[in-house]
């Protein structure tokens, strides 16, 4: 549904942001984008809904060119974004109003807005907080509100740009739980992060460095590459464990990463085979 062809981007001050990016994203795919701070992840995903326009090359969403101003509204209805900072993307004075902001901009009838808001709040489990002000919501709850706001747009694709990097570990778990729920509902998800463990189960992972895509493939293949350290990335300990076991001739199924318990169980059971 998304095609990026030879995309390069220079910032207004001339700094090179992106270099010759080529990328296709399929409908229903869960794409993880990783890379250290300043590697150009945010710059890339800001092209997906026309917040930034290519300096060279072309970005098209369902065939609509993001450089075409007359298509911008429809593009933004197709691709929603959730950003890093929970506070600056909360624009309503109450939770319910914030979630309603997008549908209101689409000039939908009030009944439809009401329905979308209720539905979205239910998915993120904040239906009892609808009249809360941003002051009385925790960081994690505000970030869930931002997810609800994106859901209320009923877009085909949602881009998450480092949504958990400003959260404590408990809120991060909360947000991850919601993401699990969202996955596989024929919705395309682009998930940007610098924590590799958050994209272990992605369909595909891109590694970015200095405005370029430097690795691409399934998490399993990408996370085996020994040079990830060069790109300023750190493998999660559990992946390191799996990799060294495999190097020692003891290959385990990658799917076991889904739960530590299962992995432990598997190792325990297979000790007889060694």
């Amino acid at each position: 549904m998304i095609r990026i062809e030879d995309l390069s981007y220079n910032f207004p001050d001339g700094t090179r942001g992106l270099k010759k990016i080529n990328l296709g994203i399929e409908r229903g795919e869960f794409l993880g984008i990783v890379g250290r701070n300043g590697s150009g992840k945010s710059t890339l995903v800001r092209h997906l809904n026309g917040l930034l326009k290519p300096t060279e090359g072309k970005v098209s969403i369902n065939g609509m060119d993001t450089a075409d101003p007359s298509k911008l509204l429809e593009i933004r209805q197709t691709v929603s974004m959730v950003f890093q900072n929970p506070y600056t993307q909360f624009v309503g004075t109450t939770l319910e109003e914030d979630v309603a902001f997008g549908p209101e901009n689409l000039a939908l009838p009030p009944e439809e807005i009401r329905e979308r808001v209720d539905r979205a709040l239910e998915v993120v489990g904040l239906e009892n907080y609808r009249n809360h002000s941003p002051k009385t919501l925790s960081g994690g709850q505000s970030q869930c509100a931002a997810i609800a706001s994106a859901l209320a747009m009923k877009s085909e694709c949602i881009v998450f740009d480092e949504i958990s990097s400003m959260l404590d570990s408990r809120s991060r778990e909360q947000v991850r739980e919601i993401l699990r729920k969202l996955r596989g509902k024929a919705r395309t998800i682009v998930y940007v992060t610098h924590r590799l463990e958050e994209v272990l189960h992605a369909d595909r992972v891109l590694v970015m460095d200095r405005g370029e895509i430097v690795r691409e493939g399934s998490p399993k293949t990408v996370f085996k590459a020994p040079e990830l350290g060069e790109f300023g990335l750190e493998l999660p300990p559990i992946v390191e464990l799996l990799n060294s076991l495999e190097a020692g001739g003891f290959a385990l199924d990658w799917a076991l990463l889904a739960s530590i318990e299962n992995l432990a169980e598997e190792i325990w059971e297979s000790r007889w085979k060694i």
Partner: peptide
Amino acid sequence: VTEAMESRCYQGQCRTSL
């Protein structure tokens, strides 16, 4: 804030309200 608003289709032309 502007980016978040633009991403959610704000245009200031015609809106409805919850």
